[in-house]
């Protein structure tokens, strides 16, 4: 029998309830989604059942340092997804800007930020995306940029559309931009998704709802920022990103 939105909603609500009760009982906040989250069906066979093994790092621990990126790894146009073809892509032009910070609020400088997204119709330029929405010959939906000295990044792009997927009948993903981020240490690696404010699909999406902590979920949603909007050009969204995980410099400072 086909899995309905109602079935998924019930599972999501049960897990939300269990988390909220645990929190009320003094459990610590869960900032990341559990890898075992049944409403997202693809997670069933793709999460480990053994607990993670803790590694107490020292400065020699390889993961407490990380890869370096530089000017050769990006071109000047890589952060403007609207200028990678001869014509203008269709859709609502937006600017997405923010800062990349570590857990102590310090800017992560000169690191690689990568983004990918669907076009304004909700279609990816990926052969396996067979959503019957139009491809846009002027939009690929891939960008990258290095963070500045203050950890800042900025992209010009178009607002992606919502799209259907096959988790259950009538499953739709809220509009989102995929982000990939590097910190100063490999432990700080992050891949995530940025959402747009007030999307009516939020309550129905098991991927967003896998983040059971309400304030953590809010941190995935960009803010509309009128000061970032550019006259006659684009609407501005602000989204700051905070990386988790220790780095070698933390250990050198004696934590």
């Amino acid at each position: 029998m086909a899995l309905t939105q109602h079935d998924i909603d019930r599972e999501v609500a049960e897990l939300q309830d269990a988390y909220d009760k645990a929190r009320a009982g003094g459990a610590p906040a869960a900032h990341h989604p559990p890898r075992d989250y049944a409403p997202y069906r693809s997670s069933a066979l793709r999460h480990p059942k053994q607990p993670l093994v803790a590694v107490h790092g020292d400065p020699e621990t390889v993961e407490l340092s990380g890869p370096a990126f530089g000017n050769t790894d990006v071109t000047a146009l890589d952060n403007d997804l609207t200028r990678q073809h001869t014509g203008e892509p269709l859709g609502e032009r937006i600017t997405v800007s923010g800062r990349l910070l570590d857990g102590r609020g310090r800017p992560v400088r000169g690191q690689l930020v990568e983004v990918w997204q669907a076009n304004a119709s909700g279609r990816y330029a990926h052969q396996r995306d067979d959503h019957p929405a139009p491809l846009d010959p002027n939009f690929t939906g891939v960008g990258r940029v290095l963070t500045g000295d203050d950890g800042s990044y900025s992209f010009t792009t178009i607002k992606p559309g919502a799209y259907p997927w096959r988790n259950h009948t009538n499953a739709w993903r809220p509009a989102h931009i995929h982000f990939s981020l590097f910190g100063d240490a490999f432990t700080q690696r992050l891949v995530t998704q940025m959402y747009f404010p007030n999307d009516p699909l939020f309550p129905y999406d098991p991927i967003l709802r896998s983040v059971t902590d309400e304030s953590a979920r809010q941190r995935l949603i960009a803010s509309y920022d009128h000061d970032l909007s550019q006259p006659e050009f684009s609407l501005g969204y602000r989204w700051d990103i905070v990386l988790d995980g220790p780095s070698a410099t933390w250990i050198e400072e004696g934590r």
């Binding site: 997202y40 857990g103 609020g105 990568e114 990926h126 891949v191 995530t192 983040v211 995935l220 905070v242």
Partner: peptide
């Protein structure tokens, strides 16, 4: 600062 939550890389990173 509380961290930004992780999300799956999804199925369509392959061209990115």
């Amino acid at each position: 600062l509380p961290p930004t939550p992780s999300h799956t890389v999804g199925p369509f990173y392959g061209y990115a």
